[in-house]
Amino acid sequence: MTAPVTTPAQPDGEEPDAQQGMILEVRGLTKRFDGLVANKDIDFDIPRRSIVSIIGPNGAGKTTLFNQISGFFEPTEGTIVFDGIPLGGLAPHDVVELGMARTYQNIRLFQNMTVIGNVLVGHHVRMKSQWWQAILGLRSVREEEERSRAYALELLDMVSLSRRYAEDLAKNLPYGDQRRLEIARALASGPKLLLLDEPTAGMNPMETRQMTDLIAKLRRELGLTILLIEHDMKVVMGVSERITVLDYGEKIAEGTPQEIRTNPKVIEAYLGKQATA
C-alpha cells in the first residue's frame, strides 16, 4: 500500500537500535498512585515484527502498563526505550510521532465525527498543513487533503470496513466495526508498534477470528510489531509469539504460548492456589 507517510524523524540522526532487534525495551517500570502500586518493577522487551500478548487477571495492571508505554502516564520509576529512543518526558503526541499507536479497552472513538474524520485525525501527525496554509487555500494543502483521504479509504479497506460508511458518524457503527475503525485510526499514524487493548472484547467467535486474522495480516503486510492485551485465551495462544503475564502489578511469567500454558504460577494466578495444590 502506498501511503503518503513520512518516515518518523530520528532525533540527532541516531540509527534505530538494531541490538537484538528490540523495538521496545522496558526496565524496572513502576507506577504508583497515591499508595497503590499499579505496576511494580517490570522488565520486558518486544522484538521487532513480533506479536506479543500481555495477559493477567483483572486489575493486574495491564492497561496501566500500556498507558505508561504510550506516554500517557509518567512512570514513577523505570525507563522505556522505544526504537532506541528513551521516552522519558515525552508527551503522548510525541510518542505517536515516533511511531507508536494504540486502541482502547472501551472504545474511545471520536463518536460524533465521521468514520473518515476519525481516521484522518489518526493521520494528523503525518500531515503537514498548518493553519495559515489552510486559510490561504494553498494547493499543497488541497493535495495533501486529497492524498490523505485516499489513504484513509485504503486503511478502511485494510481493516475490512466498508467504504460506504466513510461519511457516517462513528457512533452509529455497529460494535465490531467501531473496533475496526479504532484500529484504522491507529494505523493512520503510520506506527511501527501497535498497542491493542482487548481488541476482541465483546465479540462473537466469528468476529474474533476476523480480528485475529486482521492482526496477523497487519504484521505480515505492514511489518508492524503488535502488543496485545487480551483475555480470550484462544486469541492469545493462537496469535502470539510471546506472552507476558502480569499479576498484582508484577510480571510473573514470560515465554512462548506453550511455556505459559503449562506454567504453574500462571495457572495459580488465574485460578487461585487450590488449582495447583
Partner: peptide
C-alpha cells in the same frame, strides 16, 4: 470530543 484520546492520537492539544 475527547481531549485525552486526541492527545494520544497525535494531536498536540
Amino acid at each position: 470530543e475527547d481531549e485525552s484520546v486526541a492527545q494520544a492520537t497525535g494531536v498536540n492539544t
